[in-house]
Structure formats: C-alpha cells, structure tokens
Design a protein around this nucleic acid. Structure first.
Length: 207
DNA sequence: CCCTGATTCGC
DNA sequence: GCGAATCAGG
C-alpha cells in the first residue's frame, strides 16, 4: 500500500479527530500503526492536543487559533466527528440471549421503577425476560463476578473487555463489567452465561 | 498484558 | 519517503 492522496486525507482527518494510530491503521488497512505514526511525523502532524487532557477533544470552545498551520479547523473536526457511526443495533444471537437489563432484576439493584425518561414515549419495550428464565448457576456466577467487575466506562470498552452493562444508564451509577472477555465474545464468561442460553432451557424455566 | 505515541535507521 | 524495531510510557 502506498500513501495516496486519499489515504493521506483519511489519515489526516482521523488523526485530527483524535483517533489513535492503530485505529487509523485498521481503517486504512494494509499498514501498521507504526506506518501511520511514521507518516504522521513526516507530515508534521505530530503535536496533536499539545499538552494535557486527551481522549475528549478540547475544541468545543472556539478558542482563538493562536497557532498557525491549523491541522483542522473546529468546524471541520466537528463534521468529521458527526460521521462516527452510532452503535449498531445489537442483533439477537441465534442462541436467544437474555436482555442485559435482567442483570438488575437479578441483582435487585433498584430494578424498578425504570427511569421513564430513558424510554422515549411511544416506544414499546422489547419483550422483557423474567428472572426465572435464567439458570440459578448462571445467576450465581454473575453476582459473584459483578463484585469484582472493573467498572469501566463506555469509552474504555475494547474488543476484549466485557461489555455487560451494570446499573442504570440514566444515572451516574452505571458502568460496564470490563473483565476480560473470551476472544471474539462480547462478554466475560459469566455474562456470556446469562446472555446466551439455549432456547429450550429458557422455555423450560419460564413460568 | 493491553494499549499509546516517539524515535531511529536500514532500505 | 517508508515503516519495523525499538523505546518510553499509561
């Protein structure tokens, strides 16, 4: 792969938008993160956020561009950010996963009343599984695991962290399990245990 | 260990 | 110019 104008443009935009070198490399394909970093330096795009807080951009405020040679103007950066794809709707695996919301009922972590505000008016809720659809063993292991969960935030999720949500997303008391997830699986072993269950077993336990 | 960017240097 | 290897760090 060579650095075509188009690829350089992609690199420039993603870098300005705060994407990591590895993310950019993955997007471009055919290059390693080292290649991306090398190119970034050769392009003189290095010094990104300058110093301090990373992760979230510090451009919201339209502070006067003191420094010349702007990498990307705020408007431009904002436009790019808008293109970020929203999380894809979670498809139900063939093995009939149980709604994660169940965890709360199970944990009796204030299951009800759910904050009405998080459910847009007029939006019918998907079928909510009941506690007895989950095997006692799976429940026990989940309760145990959630005591030691890493409690990571949305931004800290990676391909190999458990993405099981815990708590109420409408409050501060919300986080993700964060324990190591089996390669290729979205959750840690315990949460895979309650998320994926054979249809027959669920039917049998259902009241 | 997972990950980050920075630098060097043979090609 | 390129990027693997390496370094330094979270």
């Amino acid at each position: 792969m060579s650095w075509t104008d188009e690829r350089v443009e992609t690199l420039t935009k993603m870098w300005a938008d705060g994407q990591s070198a590895s993310q950019i490399a993955k997007e471009l394909g055919g290059v390693t993160r080292n290649a991306v970093i090398g190119k970034v330096h050769r392009l003189g795009l290095s010094n990104r956020v300058a110093g301090g807080a990373e992760k979230e951009e510090a451009e919201a405020s339209s502070a006067a561009p003191v420094r010349e040679e702007p990498v990307v103007r705020p408007v431009e950066a904002a436009a790019v950010r808008t293109e970020v794809k929203p999380a894809a709707p979670t498809p139900r695996p063939a093995s009939a996963p149980v709604n994660p919301k169940m965890a709360q009922v199970v944990n009796n972590v204030t299951p009800l009343p759910l904050r009405k505000s998080i459910v847009p008016a007029g939006q019918p809720l998907p079928p909510q599984p009941s506690a007895n659809e989950i095997s006692p063993e799976a429940l026990a292991s989940v309760r145990e695991v959630e005591k030691h969960a890493k409690r990571i935030s949305l931004m800290e999720l990676t391909e190999r962290t458990c993405k099981w949500p815990i708590g109420d997303p409408a409050t501060e008391d919300f986080w993700f399990c964060g324990l190591p997830s089996a390669t290729g699986k979205p959750y840690c072993d315990a949460h895979v245990g309650v998320a994926f269950q054979p249809m027959s077993a669920r039917r049998d336990r259902r009241r």
